[in-house]
Design a protein around this nucleic acid. Structure first.
Lengths: 141, 141
DNA sequence: CCGTATCCCGGACGATACTG
DNA sequence: CAGTATCGTCCGGGATACGG
């Protein structure tokens, strides 16, 4: 399992993108930072899992999500859902039946984010064995 | 600023990828989860910023990084660097001069990860205004 | 200069109980 | 069923000082 080497062409494009991004970050320095204030809220382990599961199962209810996202507590799940809803990644539909029913699903915007998240997750799952291995070798030597 | 709609073709590819990923995650359920155990360690706000800065400035010393990654403390920076080094994203080169000099840079592996991270960060910076806006409207209504 | 060591605090998180 | 409320815990993370 070998990581592809980076071509010069890629390097140039990367440099350009970074330049643009850092320009963006500098301009509003101290005001707000997209990475800290936006990305961090949707790229923690819980949020990622929630979004991926909603990508896989288009509609999920609260307790279904709770079962899928193993180990999450009521409180944290409810908090995360509220944040993700507020930021526009997912929608919440409540049916005032008895017992009550609430359904969550990704918005169009959330689907767009899902694509990016899948790319990243794919990369990570592909290389996770290698990373675990790196970790072990680092510990030893 | 409109989010592109998702084509049927994309949906199918997404479903396939997710199926593969979740299969991967289920198979080792309880043993370890790539998202939790690998991705989460390299996708928190500090790690992202460290890696992006090392993408922009190929070589950085400890205190240079500390200045760039605004607000990070000695302790956290040193912890994150150790994790990122252990997992293979970056290398640490020490020159036993007086005063000592230590240089950090991305490995080839780290560059490969950087590409994915840039994609995500680009998406986020592109839509961050919209997200902030979503957030405000949610608060009001 | 590059960190580690220490101390301390606030906030994140888990568990549980409870309500509409 | 879908959460909220409450409480206790724990640890991430900030500040400072110091050692190699």
């Amino acid at each position: 399992m070998e990581t592809e080497t980076i071509t010069e062409n890629q390097k140039v494009r990367v440099a350009k993108k970074l330049k643009k991004m850092f320009g963006h970050m500098d301009r509003r320095e101290m005001e707000y930072c997209p990475i800290r204030d936006v990305m961090a809220l949707a790229s923690d382990k819980w949020s990622i899992l929630i979004i991926l599961y909603l990508g896989y199962f288009p509609i999920l209810r609260f307790n279904q999500l709770k079962k899928k996202v193993y180990g999450i507590s009521n409180k944290v799940l409810s908090e995360r859902l509220k944040i993700l809803e507020a930021d526009g990644y997912l929608s919440r539909q409540m049916y005032p039946e008895v017992p009550i029913r609430v359904e969550y699903q990704l918005t169009t915007f959330g689907h767009s984010y899902l694509l990016k998240l899948i790319d990243l997750s794919e990369w990570v799952t592909t290389y996770s064995d290698q990373i675990i291995d790196n970790r072990k070798r680092f510990k030893k030597g």
